[in-house]
Simulated scan of single mutants.
Amino acid sequence: MPASSMPAPRVPVFDGHNDSLLRLLLSGHPSPEEGFLAGERLCHLDLPRARAGGFVGGLFAIYVPDPSGAGVEADALMTRPRYDVPLPPALDPGYARDATLAMLAILLRLERASEGALAVCRSVPDIEAAMARGAVAMVAHLEGAEAIDPDLRTLEVLHAAGLRSLGPVWSRPTIFGEGVPFRFPSGPDIGRGLTPAGEALVRACNRLRIMIDLSHLNERGFWDVARLSRAPLVATHSNAHAICPHARNLTDAQLAAIGESRGMVGLNFATSFIRPDGRRDAATPLSMMVDHIDHLVARVGIDGVGLGSDFDGATMPDAIGDARGLPNLVAALAERGYAGEALEKICWRNWLRVLDATWRA
């Protein structure tokens, strides 16, 4: 665990985003579920690390990787002062559905194999019950809707299997819209807005009470969702563009709209979205993360800010490392003056509020 001399308040953390299912899928482990439960260093997040770091639950992303391996040079490019990472093309729908079902199956097998230590949750009462008995609450989230057909039949099936949150796009085009590239410096006003299929997807998510994640959506798509959706606006793992002018981060106008909708932003721990220089660098101090929290609270409000780590999907600051390092961030927030109810809101209560507002709307 990263060393820290800071006294960390013991506050539970509900997290808006991790990519551990993808890491398990690609691990080559003969039983990735057993590896996760045993803490075999397959992921930033596993059951022992969750317990050590106070991680009580979160949104477990299903992200479909590009089968060609395109974009593997991204890590090197993102260490430069300026970059524009080439993005992979749209995915084959059949491949996307197969990969999506494979990761959803891992999630369900994790629950079964854990003998009560992990719980797939479909409602806030499910999450609260898991927390009360010391289980880790897992919410199924689709990061990029490539697996969903234009008639939305797959959406109905995935919802029945437990899907409760989705992003219409990752940072590549889908039939629903376009995402933002990994580009620095850049604003998010890139590309067209939602397609007619994307507008139908928003309406269907409202009907099924599936949360819509705006994190990878471009600015025109963001405003389309804001116009169409009846639910709070949510970005599960995004930061403040005013501090780090990366295409993936949110402008003050977007943050204000999220606040007006009583929505939510989860702080992304990825160093390239934190640092003012936009660089992928693990030597990123916790103070930079708290600077983003301060800005988000000022623009969205204390009721609309949480954590969205991106564990297993990004380079973490050395001061956090993996889920065991979460108390270090909690301590840094406390040192900046966040305490009591405000600290609990950022660490977990705000997520439960916005999920409840979305799922019961």
Rank of each mutant, 00 (worst) to 15 (best):
V11D: 06
L21C: 08
L22F: 11
H29V: 09
P32E: 09
E33C: 12
A38I: 01
R41L: 05
L47C: 02
P48V: 03
P48I: 04
R49W: 02
R49D: 01
A50H: 02
A52P: 06
G58K: 03
L59F: 15
F60K: 01
A61M: 06
P65T: 05
P65C: 10
P65V: 11
G71E: 06
V72H: 13
E73Q: 14
D75L: 12
A76S: 15
T79C: 12
T79Y: 04
R82Q: 12
Y83S: 02
P86T: 08
P88S: 04
L91Q: 02
D92A: 04
G94T: 14
A99S: 14
L101C: 10
A102Y: 08
A102S: 15
I106Y: 03
S114Y: 03
E115A: 15
V120C: 12
R122N: 13
S123I: 07
I127T: 01
A130N: 11
A132H: 06
R133G: 04
R133Q: 05
M138K: 05
M138E: 09
E143T: 00
G144D: 06
D149F: 08
R153A: 15
L158S: 08
H159C: 07
G167R: 02
P168K: 09
S171A: 15
T174D: 07
R183Q: 15
P188K: 01
D189L: 13
R192C: 01
G193S: 12
L194S: 11
P196M: 05
A197N: 11
A197P: 01
L201I: 08
V202F: 01
D213E: 10
S215F: 07
S215H: 04
H216R: 03
L217E: 00
F222D: 02
D224A: 08
A235K: 11
A235V: 12
T236V: 07
I243A: 03
P245Y: 13
P245I: 01
P245N: 14
H246V: 03
N249Y: 10
A253D: 15
Q254S: 07
I258W: 13
G259H: 09
S261E: 09
S261N: 10
M264W: 13
G278K: 08
D281H: 11
L286Y: 07
M289G: 00
G301Q: 10
G301N: 10
I302F: 04
F311G: 02
I320E: 08
G325P: 05
P327C: 09
A334E: 12
R353Y: 12
L355N: 05
L355E: 03
D356Q: 15
W359G: 07
